[in-house]
Nucleic acid binder design. Structure first.
Lengths: 175, 175, 175, 175
DNA sequence: CATGAATGAGCGTTCATTCAT
DNA sequence: GATGAATGAACGCTCATTCAT
């Protein structure tokens, strides 16, 4: 998985499976002992990365805290994960738009992020997203987060500023 | 170009050039009379679609109107283009993440959208995006638009509602 | 023909017919008004070049002169042609080994060089080539000439020396 | 290599790689497991054939013998190789004029024939080739040999006679 | 006769996948 | 289970040749 992530980042999704195997230190044939096909590898990787991301975002979530602080904590965790794992994020971005990832996998990934989705649902009800559907609200929040991550990674000098501004937009959207 | 758009939507960027040629009603060899290579076709298509999108968004822009109305007009145009041309939008989404699209093409596309960028820059200065960099602000606005488009297309029944909600988030972000 | 010669020298026999047409200042389609096919063009060119070479070699042949002087005159003419027309020679060399040139063309070319062959036959009878067949003797003389030409062209500084040495070998072979 | 030799002889250098693979009893793709490209195959084959030819020519070279006998032995060996391996010879002829064979390969082939070149250099110094440059002398000798081979192969009935005559010309040239 | 766009067969090369060892 | 050579379908691209204008 790690090898696949590295290779996807540097070579894209069309990288030969042999390259991934080599990066993993196994023979090209052995790769197919663990994964039925290239598409299967990609689907499993997608799932793992999504789950990892969600878990990282929810790490040490403050239970009874002030709402703004809670949301900010979530936001910070998420951004922290992205900046600490730029490779995972870029691989995930590539996999997300691939048509090799099946609807089933996407659904499974969605389930993995159930807790995150619950939190987002909480955020939705209070503010101007009140009138949005559950999915739409989550998508808006996610896209704000994704865009912010992009800029934090590509412009690390202003990462903190981007992080704050991004959060401010989110906060405006949910209050 | 139209044929390529259709084929990209249904088969993805890895679709054989022969399929695109067939869809266009020409022979596989003829495609290379018009485009030097598959990558060249994709780059030209990307440029055309981006330009078309920008031009559609700016169509009949109200000059001396109230600011909120102006922004809403822009937003509506943009959404209108997306819902009327779902194929173009999907193709553009695929092309946008392809590594076949050269930096030069991306730069040229950016130039095409100069007027749009100018308007976004105007929006940035007034509200909570004030502290964001020019590029970051534009990216945030774009991602809000993209997400809204997605939901309008995939859930046409609630298209109008999504459109309104999306605009409300944007408005909150820029005021 | 001239255009084809130039193109063959610079690009080889696999050069596109379109390139030859362009070099000749005509459209790609027009080439096939004059030549049935690429192979036909090559065959005709081969014939023309061979004939030109033979004619040049026999130019102003001294009728009743001393034998050695006659042969030297022939040799000099031949070498003169080669050094003055390096492109023709190189094209001819390429065409000569091509399997596009039909046996019929080769036979016709042979006929074109009948006078030259007659002279060679005269040379054969006198010396150590006496026991060689007609064709073999001619081939030996030709190959000596070809090799000498090669070196005169590729090492023009010593062209004269090469010319003399080559002739000396020939003279030794036929006396 | 053998398959390639056979195919080149019958179809020329423009023969499809698939045909060569088929002739070798492997799949078209497998060919590229052993050779990086068609050109690579040709270069390796050229080298192998040249080396084989040189080695055959020098086989059992008589050390302290009479000079004429030594040269004749060399000549005989060379002719023997050619008549026993007409396919190799024809393939070599085709490869030799191909522009797929790199200068590097030609240089390497030249090195392979170093001993042969040394012998030729010895021959040069004694006779009428004395005034020729090293390379020119070798080229003259080679061309005499090549022409003789051609006739021995195409006219096997008189092979022995051709061989003798050819040698006589060579001997005249170097004494 | 000239043009040049259109044709489509053909080729070199890649790579996911298989399977004998 | 691990290996890596072998497979062969598939693809992007070229170019000799045709033919409507």
């Amino acid at each position: 998985m790690k090898a696949a992530t590295r290779v996807i980042v540097t070579q894209g999704l069309s990288a030969p499976t042999a390259t991934i195997a080599q990066e993993a230190g196994i023979s090209n044939g052995s790769l197919f002992t663990y994964f039925e096909s290239k598409a299967d590898l990609f689907n499993q990787l997608y799932l793992e990365l999504k789950a990892g991301m969600a878990s990282a975002a929810l790490q040490g979530f403050p239970a009874g805290d002030d709402f703004r602080k809670q949301v900010f904590q979530l936001w910070s965790n998420w951004m922290e994960w992205a900046t600490s794992n730029p490779e995972k994020r870029r691989a995930l971005a590539q996999l997300g738009v691939s048509d090799e990832i099946t609807p089933a996998t996407r659904a499974a990934a969605h389930k993995t992020m159930a807790s995150l989705a619950d939190l987002m649902e909480q955020m939705r009800t209070s503010g101007s997203l009140r009138n949005a559907s559950k999915g739409f609200a989550a998508a808006i929040m996610s896209s704000l987060a994704e865009t912010t991550m992009d800029f934090m990674i590509h412009d690390p000098a202003n990462a903190k500023k981007h992080c704050k501004v991004g959060f401010e937009i989110l906060w405006r959207a949910i209050t």
